[in-house]
Amino acid sequence: MKFSSRALGGALIGAVLLLASACAPAGTAAEERQPGQLSIVAAFYPFQFVAERVAGDHAVVTSLTAPGAEPHDLELTPKQVASISSADLVIYEKSFQAAVDEAVAQSGNPNVLDTATVVPLSPLSEADEHDHEQAAEGEEHEHSGLDPHVWLDPNNMVTITNAVRDRLIQIDRAHASDYSGNARELDGQLLSLDKQYRTTLQTCRLREFITTHAAFGYLARRYGLEQVGINGLSPDSEPSPARIAEVQQIAREHHVTTIFYETLVSPAVAQSIAGDLGLKTDVLDPIEGITDSSRGDDYLSVMASNLTALTTANGCG
């Protein structure tokens, strides 16, 4: 049974931690570990990817967000709350997932890495902030006007990789050379990906791209593109008729060819707008989770697929 941490006070979380630890349910990361291996808990996929690559065989990495689940509205099970308390390292981004924020705060675990401390979050663009406010009307503003999607800029992933390396070396100095070597290899792949993006996207005929989920602000700024979000930060919110009309007008004015949607959310809105204008639809994946329908089996391959989609839609290369 799942519960939302918003409804939990500190005393209840403490009780859950004690109960879950005492029960020690089968399949926990601790039980799967071999002697000497670390336990790393990542809030969702991009941080899981980095942790697995940097730690290698020296750790078992688990993600709090299941494959195919939408991470924005994550709720935690008692077992997951307990794993945050007992992990050798927890990697998360403060303000992205309220349930994780509260569980980390209540856990008392000092071995946590808040990626927002090494990659500061940027304010939303004026347009995306407007969309965010519309989508969140009557709801709690979890992002406080900041864009959490830092991982869609490979340069930010380099920074996060190096921060994970440094924390692992602090925790497990015996394997420092392995962590450094693994991080160096991943950094090289991420910088190569960045070079591919820079080289390809600088030649684009169109600079604007339209997507249902306004997750690509960091990517757009890095490579000189302009993101137009239909739904703002909330991927499953319903855009107003006025917003749909605005997006259609932008598409006409800039001769946009494609309306992008993502794999974890229904494509109905994108298909409707594209159908009205006679445009194509395609996937632009925010890589918040990897599923069987993802165009790739890890962060690097899905980012490469995103580049192919942008290249085709915007006349690049």
Rank of each mutant, 00 (worst) to 15 (best):
G296W: 11
L300A: 05
E93S: 10
A116Q: 06
D282R: 05
N314S: 08
D194N: 01
E253L: 12
E126S: 00
G217V: 08
Q48A: 08
A51C: 13
F96G: 02
E253A: 13
L146N: 10
D172I: 02
S240E: 07
L19C: 13
Q170K: 09
L300S: 03
L12G: 11
K280Y: 07
S107M: 11
L8A: 15
K280I: 02
E262V: 12
L191N: 05
A215C: 11
G232T: 09
V90G: 02
H143D: 08
T117W: 08
D276I: 00
A135H: 05
G296C: 13
D88S: 02
D292W: 00
G317H: 00
Q227F: 03
G9S: 15
N156S: 07
G108S: 12
R53H: 09
A174T: 04
E75A: 06
L19S: 15
T199A: 11
I290Y: 00
I290C: 00
S107K: 13
E246K: 09
T65W: 00
H254V: 11
T203Y: 07
Q37V: 15
T281E: 06
S85W: 04
A242T: 11
D194L: 02
Y92F: 07
K94C: 02
E208G: 02
V100I: 13
A116C: 10
V265S: 01
L76G: 09
L307G: 04
L121V: 02
V247R: 02
P154L: 01
A15R: 10
T200D: 01
R198Q: 07
I210Q: 02
V119K: 04
P25G: 01
T115F: 06
A242V: 08
G27Q: 03
A15V: 08
Q37A: 12
L64T: 13
L74K: 05
S240W: 07
S86E: 06
I244R: 10
H175Q: 14
L12A: 14
L146C: 09
T203M: 06
S301K: 08
M157A: 07
P71G: 03
Y218F: 11
P35G: 14
L8K: 15
T161W: 06
A22S: 12
L310Q: 00
P120Q: 10
I84A: 08
V90R: 05
G108M: 09
E70K: 11
V164R: 04
S192C: 04
E226M: 13
Q189A: 09
P67K: 01
G296F: 14
E102D: 10
A29P: 01
T117C: 04
A136C: 03
R6K: 11
D282I: 03
T159V: 14
F3S: 15
L225S: 03
T291Q: 07
G181A: 14
T159Q: 08
G138H: 13
D57N: 13
D88H: 04
Q97Y: 12
T28K: 02
